[in-house]
Every structure is written in structure tokens, then in C-alpha cells.
């Protein structure tokens, strides 16, 4: 059984995101353990990209900080390898297609396997284009995480049926970032998925506070939080382990309350 499945065995999953190398690779490594200790079920590690078109300003700024600090894809592979020696928590990379494609799909996925990454999320690789990497992902045992959005409608069937690991359900139009309210009818989206597949559904985009975590977890299998965490890291920098840990704890609890 893949490690990703285990993320959904401990009540509603809480899935935090952080940008690898923000503010530096050592802090990222420390934060991964802090998140795990405070109840994270799966951790998304962002491989920074110069032009992250699906991200709002908070994660854009994190990518810029990481890249200007000199972090590279190879540094992240090495970091994950060190982390993997001490933990079995499911880890997935979230990045854009060019850092993967340019590195070489085969080489990138072989390194994922070697360092202990379990899945990969590529927001600018839609279902129609994904077959150029899907086979290689299978070969190396890396789950390619599909995404559905509020606009997907009749596309949900194909996407849900080919989903691996979990399905990333985008809660809102637009880009990542904290939102006051989530207006999409996510319940209907997820019911539609359920009619085609029993893949775990995690909701992301716009979730920042315990109230939202509780509401979203109630209609899904887990919640994903990125910008709200990256904002804490931006504020506290090298001292962010404490505040990030507390936040993760409160969100995991809220999701299961």
C-alpha cells in the first residue's frame, strides 16, 4: 500500500504545504518534522518555480525567497532523502511542469523514488497532457495527483477515474491564497467524484482558519493549507517552527472536530 493511502487513515487528513528552501533548506527540514509531530498526515513540499502561475502573492513571494536563496531541485532531493531516514510520513512534491520536464521526467521521477517522495502535483499539467508523464510515474511508483476545479463539471468523470493517491479538489476559481469565504458548492463537486471513484478527496485553495477546516473536512476526506502556513513562515522566518506547529495542531483538531 502506498504511503499516501495511510494519510487518510487517521480521521480527516490535514495536509500542510510549505515551499522548499523558504527561508532556507534547514528550516524546511525542521518544519517537516514539526508538522508531523503536530498531526500533519501528509506534507506537500513546493519545488520553487520562477513563474508559478497558479499561485497567489504569498506563495509567489515564498518561491522568490527560496530561489534567491539559491535552493535547487537537487538540494530538495537531498533534503527529502535525509528526512526520509527518520520518518514514514507521506511526502509529495508540488511544482510546475517545467522544473520536472526540464530536469528530465525520467530522471526527476527516479530521484523522487530514490529519496522517498510518494507523489507529485503539477498544476499546469492538465489531464489531457498528463499521459506524457503518467507512465513514468507508474514505473517509479510515484502517484500523479490529479486536480479538479469548480469549472471541471463533466470533466470530473475522466479525472476522477484515473486519479491516484488522492484527488486535489480546488475549492475556488483563481489562484492559491487565503479567502474569507469559499463560495463554490464543494459538496456537489465531491459528490460527483464519489459517483465515479472512491479516491480520497482533499480540498485546497483558500482555507486558512479552523472554522473553514472544519467545514471543508465535513464534506471531504481532508484539507490542504498552503498560503496561511507560508505566511507564518514569512513572518517568523528561522523562528517559525513553534508557530507553524501550533497552527498545524489547531487545524488538524478543527478538521476532526
Amino acid at each position: 500500500m502506498s504511503r499516501i493511502k495511510k494519510a487518510f487513515e487517521n480521521g480527516k487528513a490535514f495536509i500542510p504545504f510549505l515551499t522548499g528552501g523558504d527561508p532556507d533548506i534547514g528550516i524546511t527540514e525542521k518544519l517537516i518534522f514539526e508538522m508531523e509531530a503536530n498531526g500533519a498526515d501528509l506534507i506537500e513540499i513546493g519545488v520553487p518555480f520562477s513563474d508559478p502561475i497558479a499561485e497567489g502573492v504569498v506563495i509567489q513571494a515564498a518561491d522568490e525567497r527560496a530561489l534567491s536563496g539559491g535552493v535547487t531541485t537537487d538540494d530538495l532531493f537531498a533534503m527529502v532523502k535525509r528526512v526520509r531516514e527518520k520518518t514514514q510520513i507521506p511526502l509529495v512534491f508540488m511544482t510546475y511542469y517545467n522544473p520536472v520536464f526540464s530536469y528530465g521526467n525520467e530522471k526527476f521521477l527516479a530521484n523522487c523514488k530514490d529519496c522517498g517522495i510518494d507523489g507529485i502535483i503539477i498544476p499546469d499539467l492538465p489531464f489531457e497532457e498528463s499521459d506524457e508523464i503518467r507512465g513514468t510515474c507508474k514505473e517509479y511508483g510515484i502517484d500523479l495527483i490529479n486536480m479538479i476545479a469548480p469549472t471541471s463539471e463533466e470533466r470530473i468523470e475522466r479525472i476522477a477515474k484515473s486519479a491516484e493517491g488522492f484527488l486535489y479538489c480546488v475549492s475556488s476559481l483563481g489562484v492559491t491564497g487565503v479567502r474569507e469565504t469559499i463560495t463554490t458548492n464543494v459538496t456537489a463537486m465531491i459528490e460527483k467524484v464519489r459517483s465515479y471513484s472512491d479516491i480520497p478527496c482533499a480540498i485546497g485553495f483558500g482555507i486558512s482558519n479552523p472554522k473553514q477546516a472544519k467545514e471543508m473536512a465535513a464534506v471531504s476526506d481532508g484539507v490542504i493549507v498552503g498560503s496561511a502556513i507560508v505566511r507564518i513562515i514569512a513572518e517568523h522566518g528561522k523562528e517559525s517552527a513553534g508557530p507553524v506547529g501550533e497552527y498545524v495542531k489547531s487545524m488538524k483538531e478543527a478538521a476532526n472536530s
Partner: peptide, 23 residues
């Protein structure tokens, strides 16, 4: 699978899922 808008190996539709229906 249907590959849209190809010029040899170039082109395609590499955008987030949100934008696929409007394309």
C-alpha cells in the same frame, strides 16, 4: 488521448485545470 494544438512536438495546453473548460 486527444492532443490539441500541436505543431510537431510543440504547442499543447499546459494550463491549470480551472482554465481547461474556457479554452
Amino acid at each position: 488521448m486527444e492532443k490539441k494544438g500541436r505543431f510537431g512536438q510543440f504547442g499543447g495546453q499546459y494550463v491549470p485545470e480551472t482554465l481547461m473548460p474556457v479554452l
